[in-house]
């Protein structure tokens, strides 16, 4: 058995294997772990960009009791034996995090009332916790020329926080990436070059990894506010992916298919474009039962029943309550 490393975060300790990052250790500890807008554990090379996960390392290790000179990105910094980390307990960290949230919001359009991501938006949640009531930003907000990136995905560049997740997702999940970040600084934009459609198989996952409403599902646009939708675990037999999805329903109609996400908001199993975009009939799916969205979600407030079962719909016997 390899040596475990003891790390203390906000006064609580945990032992983790070498190579574990502060964020991963904090997530295992539960409670108030640092937020993450760009890091995505299943996508290689993500992290370090958004800076909302900054924490203070008050003691580097048992052998080096000095603090680290600057706040560090918890998603990339690996724990050492005897490391002491301050997250919520450090006013410095909270001030920095509030600052980053403010930076993320100054050019954000705040068009939540018409944004399909509202209700399941990481930036919305983050600003609820760390934002201020007003803004100090009096300048003109950034705008971009609208571009069409294909039949499946709607791009709203003004909402993008440039987390690069979709770039890594397209790189690692599809057989060729046709989009990336163009330009630099605050005029950087997610784009295809030259005009191109993002329609490779598995490309739909860029919608699920997007923490904001910059990439949304064209087949779901304006169908329903997400908190009025009823998510069900559903599956179908698929040769390309696990076929394990969530079917989002309005009445008895499936209005959206997404991948399933874990407690940290990360996709458990990336799904193919066929499952996501091409199967919107109830008869295409085996409905397992209501999806537990977790306590934080606005969706969990809905109490709802299984859809009315017509003979054409398959429902797993074990999921049907008596």
């Amino acid at each position: 058995m390899e040596n475990l490393l003891k790390v203390t975060i906000d006064g609580k300790s945990i032992e983790v294997p070498p190579g574990t990052t502060i964020l991963q250790a904090a997530r295992q500890l539960g409670g108030n772990y640092p937020p993450a807008m760009c890091y995505y554990s299943s996508l290689k090379d993500t992290g370090g960009k958004c800076r909302v996960c900054l924490v203070k390392v008050a003691q580097t290790s048992e052998t080096n009791p000095r603090p680290m000179p600057k706040l560090v990105a918890s998603c990339l910094t690996r724990v050492e034996q005897g490391m002491v980390v301050e997250n919520q307990s450090s006013p410095e960290v909270l001030e920095a995090r509030n600052g980053v949230v403010e930076f993320l919001l100054i050019n954000h359009p705040l068009d939540c009332p018409v944004c399909d991501q509202a209700g399941e938006c990481d930036l919305q949640n983050l600003s609820y916790e760390h934002g201020t009531e007003g803004t100090r930003y009096e300048e003109q907000r950034r705008e971009f020329n609208k571009i069409d990136i294909g039949p499946y995905v709607q791009l709203h560049m003004t909402r993008c926080i440039l987390c690069y997740r979709c770039v890594y997702a397209a790189e690692q999940l599809t057989d060729s990436r046709v989009h990336g970040v163009l330009n630099r600084g605050d005029v950087s934009e997610i784009s295809t070059y030259i005009q191109n459609a993002i329609d490779k198989d598995f490309s739909g996952n860029i919608i699920d990894v997007c923490p904001v409403g910059a990439l949304t599902d064209k087949t779901y646009r304006f169908k329903q506010r997400v908190w009025f939708s009823k998510p069900f675990n559903a599956h179908r037999s698929c040769a390309k992916c696990s076929g394990q999805t969530i079917a989002w329903m309005k009445g008895d109609a499936i209005i959206r298919i997404t991948a399933r996400k874990n407690a940290f908001g990360e996709v458990e199993d990336f799904i193919c474009n066929e499952c996501r975009f091409e199967h919107k009939q109830l008869s295409d799916w085996t409905i397992e039962g209501p999806r537990d969205m977790g306590e934080d979600s606005v969706i969990s407030a809905n109490k709802y029943e299984l859809p009315v079962i017509s003979p054409a719909v398959n429902v797993d016997a074990k999921f049907v309550s008596e």
Partner: peptide, 16 residues
């Protein structure tokens, strides 16, 4: 003008 735009504080703060 020269910020790469990768991390939020520099991308947004320099312009502000």
């Amino acid at each position: 003008h020269e910020s790469c735009g990768q991390c939020s504080p520099c991308r947004e703060g320099t312009g502000w």
